[in-house]
Write a protein that binds this DNA or RNA. Structure first.
Lengths: 132, 132
DNA sequence: TTACACCCTGTAGCAACTACAGGGTCAAGC
DNA sequence: GCTTGACCCTGTAGTTGCTACAGGGTGTAA
């Protein structure tokens, strides 16, 4: 299978596939006589794994670790579980941060009286603390 | 006031202050005879504004727009309000995305039976769709 | 044969900083 | 008066995770 086929089978851009190869996430495939990359089902499985992990928000470094762990099937699953749990707490704190930020932004917007910028409460809120 | 003082007064790194100057967000200050940057209260106010807007998650491009709007005090406040509202909806969709992702990751983690990687449901979940 | 879709390599760009490298300046202490 | 150390300067390269060229080669169908 050519790179374009692999890419569309995994909803990935061709450039991204080559990028994953360059950084060592995807092993270099065989080449045709025309120097085209030629992928097998192993590549498809591995790229699917990468994409799915990325969709779940894992960083490329985490994906790299997960792949290493996945390759050693006799190992305990706990390391995998650990990476996922760390990631979960990161997501939780991002959600908390965004939620707090949303509340404050909402408050700022709520102060808008639609006058001129001179009286704009939004601009004022953004100004230095001592000006309030 | 020297760059280090301005930086610590606004909880910004010195490099970031110079970066804001380079991209035109912060006007170039006067220089001392030793070529040190010398800031006034106007710079402090402007940098405070930038930091606060950044803390609220506005992009530098949005900050640039807000600053332009803030400089023309006779203008209507509605443009400012508009930028803030667009940003709010972006935050809302980020929160929604992260929440959905959290749910799924939690489900994936919940499937862990702490056996070997060979039986790891997390790894399995990350694999290609047809393997499930 | 010529048009077109696809493939190749290599490099530069995006956000928003951050981190050097390799210098200069200034105040305090000996 | 000299050294030490904290600060300042410029300029460039690195970070993450791609994306977008530029400038070529290949394969196939009309």
């Amino acid at each position: 299978m050519k790179i374009g086929e692999l890419a569309s089978a995994t909803a990935t851009k061709v450039e991204t596939v080559r990028f994953y190869e360059k950084i060592g996430l995807l092993p270099p495939p065989a080449r045709t006589s025309a120097n085209y990359r030629s992928y097998g089902s192993g590549h498809l499985a591995r790229l699917s794994f990468i994409r799915r992990a990325r969709d779940l928000g894992f960083t490329l470094e985490a994906v790299r670790e997960l792949l290493t762990l996945a390759d050693d099937t006799s190992q305990s699953c706990d390391a995998v579980d650990g990476i996922a749990r760390v990631h979960l707490t990161e997501i939780d704190s991002k959600i908390a941060d965004l939620t707090a930020l949303r509340t404050e932004l909402d408050r700022v917007i709520g102060s808008c009286r639609h006058g001129t910028v001179a009286d704009c409460k939004i601009i004022e809120t953004l100004g230095p603390r001592e000006a309030r």
